[in-house]
């Protein structure tokens, strides 16, 4: 189900916790699983649960509770836009509208070519840098005004 590298990462995460608390690694392992698969298919969740000795439904609870797990396939680039109030005051809503217009999709949608998925996010803890995006859960983009947005979209191969 998972590559050797991903399994190695699983083992490293499990090593952070007391021996009888393997379940603690579920969040990190699901994140690694998602990074490998591009999203989190149910089989991957079940495999992680088995790896950690958890009931699959317990892993499912975790995967559905935290909103950075993608339980549906997403585009190659998932752009999450913070529209919470502090960002909105500095253009968060408007950056989102601009993106939607450029990509021709709404929040929760993926472009026809499968390249971009757009999501509306909650506070990312970088309100001073508004508007803020996160690409693929990993890299944060600050001060996303039109020029920066254009540049970001160009850089996405």
């Amino acid at each position: 189900m998972f590559s050797a590298q991903t399994l190695e990462k699983f083992a490293r995460e499990v090593g952070k916790y007391p021996a009888d608390q393997k379940q603690s690694a579920i969040m990190a392992c699901l994140a690694h699983a998602q990074a490998e698969k591009g999203w989190l298919p149910a089989e991957a969740i079940e495999a992680v649960a088995a790896y950690l000795g958890m009931a699959p439904i317990a892993a499912w609870e975790v995967a559905t509770f935290y909103n950075m797990y993608d339980l549906q396939p997403v585009g190659k680039y998932k752009i999450t836009v913070c529209t919470n109030l502090p960002c909105a005051l500095s253009g968060g809503y408007h950056a989102g509208e601009y993106l939607q217009q450029k990509l021709g999709i709404g929040y929760g949608e993926t472009t026809a070519d499968g390249k971009f998925t757009l999501k509306e996010g909650e506070c990312m803890g970088a309100c001073g840098d508004a508007p803020v995006f996160i690409v693929n859960n990993r890299s944060m983009c600050s001060h996303m005004h039109p020029e920066q947005i254009d540049k970001l979209l160009e850089e996405c191969e």
């Binding site: 149910a42 079940e46 009931a55 699959p56 439904i57 499912w60 609870e61 559905t64 509770f65």
Partner: peptide
């Protein structure tokens, strides 16, 4: 002794379900 039902999701979308 076996967790078959869980409460998935959060907020008002919380729902009791089995895995898949």
């Amino acid at each position: 002794g076996v967790m078959e039902l869980g409460m998935a999701n959060r907020n008002m979308h919380s729902e009791i379900t089995t895995f898949l």
